[in-house]
Design a protein around this nucleic acid. Sequence first.
DNA 1: TTTAGGG
DNA 2: CCCTAAA
Length: 637
Amino acid sequence: MVFKKRLDPAINGFRVPTIPRAPRSVRRRRPLCNKVEDGRLCAFELLASIAGKLLQESESSASSNASERSDHATGKNVKQEHQVEDKPFKEGWIYQGRCGDGYFAFEVASQNICHKSTLKESCSHADSDGILECNSIINNSDCSRKVSANVSEFGTKYSEVEGGSSHFGESFDANVNNEIERQQEVQGLETEGANTCSSKDSMELCQKPTAVINTDSNVGLPLCEDTASDACFSRYRNDVMLGSRDDDENFSRCFKPRTKAKDFRSPSRIAERRIKKFLTSRYWKAAPKLKDCELSRSDGGLKQFYHKRKPSRNRERYQRDMLFKKRKMFDQSSVVISVGGFSSESVSNSSKKGMTEDKDDSAIMLHGANGVKKVSSSVIGHVPFHSKDSHVKFSIKSFKVPELLIDVPETTTVGSLKRTVMGAVTSVLGGGLCVEVLLQGKKVRDDNRTLLQTGISSKDNLDSLGFELEPSIVQTPPPLCSSDFHPILSCDSSPLLTRFPGNTIVEICDPLVDPSVMNSGSHVESGHEIVSSHIDTTDKSKPDSQALVALPAKSMEALTLIPLNQKTRHSELAQRRTRRPFSVSEVESLVHAVEKLGTGRWRDVKLRSFENADHRTYVDLKDKWKTLVHTARISPQ
DNA sequence: TTTAGGG
DNA sequence: CCCTAAA
């Protein structure tokens, strides 16, 4: 709770003054650890101004924060905070806050980087991140470089201050400048110290060993001289562990004090928090080009940068991972529709499916999404299970079409089954499809027969049962295509149709960003291989996905149909005549005719003996004679 | 078209 | 039965 509050204020309150951006090149150029004092001054000024704003905001923000607090009231961990931050990105004001954050964060990062000598990367990342832009602005000025250096120090001091929460708060409140001076001093040490960076120095400064939670070159704890109690430190540590990463750890540590700060809540602390947030946010930003999703998952980005991370981070990671997995699940996930006993539930994750299934004893476990993909060519669904009772449960899979779980009584007619499946499919695909029931590869055309009559029952081998999705258009018998052709068309078309939805889904993947959306999310959620790859797609995906969802299957069908029809036609045309074995009488007549007319006069034979047999061409007669000679060894007279 | 032959 | 070259 406290964290949130604090954080919120920081977010809300912090409004970084708009500063013109410097060109990236400039940003990048700035060395992380510049010692230029001039730059420091600038940085300090900036910091001072920011601090002042923060203080003001912190006071004002309290009210606004309350609402947010309520939201976060659960006192969720840092993760929530991150999330909150992520969301804010979208919002303009939030964005500003981030900028500020980014700035600070960047600075801090630079420090860390200095320690690790990874400055370049961090800088580059920062540059890359749009968020950093604000920061970059600062950087742009000549002072920026220096500032950055200062900032790093500043960050360290902050950490110190935080560590010493109470004292720091006081001093901070009284004057940010004082701290700044301290920082400057410290910076001087650090910067001058060059590589040594504040970490060690700070460590030395820190009287309490506990402060040194992070073995790494963390500066954060240094100023712990403040009366912070060991307990506080411990907390601090814990927090840090959670949030901090190798480089970040320092900062995080600083942040950690927040928890203590809760007690204090002095504006200064709030400001600190803000700073921390900023720092944290910065880190996020620092994360290399994160796509929207990634951004939301700051962890992922961060991870990349900071390999070393503390447990808290791990949690985030875990969550993120979970989310990621969920996405995958979605990708694979299929829609489960239960008819009859089960309440129809539209979309659910595979996991959800499992849930629902579990509810019903008979519930059939759907095959993994993998199976769905495999279904490949046809949207055919197989009925894996035998339902209890007299119900037959159908699990319909298709690579693109979400899986459908249908539970219907055996007395259900094929027609109703089709309709049921159709409804399920339609809900997913948006209509425009017809469902055909395949039993042992053959269409069940009699809609009036019950499943039992048709031989579809839980007892029967459901594997032989399949569903075929056909474009509704196709069903209305296309002039050219005979009924026979339909199957082929359906097979061909179905995949295409399914694909389309799949694609849409892919884009949809964004839901990860907003889990809630995911849940509510319609069918679209179902996943998609592509999704993973496309996950990167940022905001676009959402709108697109929606649009996609809306897309009527028909359009797809129409597109797909054309080629299909052609293929089918071709195949149809190619279809050979039904085999009509020669009857004995025919053979006799043929033999007699050949005896009289001799071989090589097949046209005459045809006219003479098979005038009336339209289906017997002289070619056929010739072939038949050929076979007779060959098999019966009849002399080719 | 018809034949003849391979498939 | 189909396909096709050749007549």
